[in-house]
Amino acid sequence: MRRIIDSDIIALMARIILAGIFILAAYYKIVDPTAFGTAIWNYHILPTQTINIIALVLPWLEILAGIALLVGAYYRGAILWINIMLLVFIAALASTIYRGLDIDCGCFKAASSAVGPAWDQMNLDIGLLVLALLLLVSRARKWQLANLF
């Protein structure tokens, strides 16, 4: 088991998948911050005064964490953020399911007219969290920019 967790090739694949998804997800949110702010508001979780600040900072944190994870610089910090973000996304989606809210999750687009089932998105996030947790405990350190310095 430890050998699988510490596998360099598995860690690399997990990094590419997580980084790709986080960077892709961030792009649409940066292009249309108004729609992303509205998507956050729809969850009815955060105080309204904080929504725009989060709508602005979160996508850039997703991009920077994705890039850092991919290239292997600020690697541990990036893994920490990706785990935290995934846990928050899962908790937010679970709360919409619990409260019976039928909202657009704002996950890959800032907003869309099609309302996707929250369960599907939560299952994807749980799968990603498994990869992120694997990277958190893995000792694999190959193919990282930090090794060059």
Partner: peptide, 12 residues
């Protein structure tokens, strides 16, 4: 790890 996370948040 925390220091790196803070730096990423700062630049974000």
């Amino acid at each position: 790890m925390l220091r790196q996370a803070f730096v990423l948040l700062f630049f974000a």
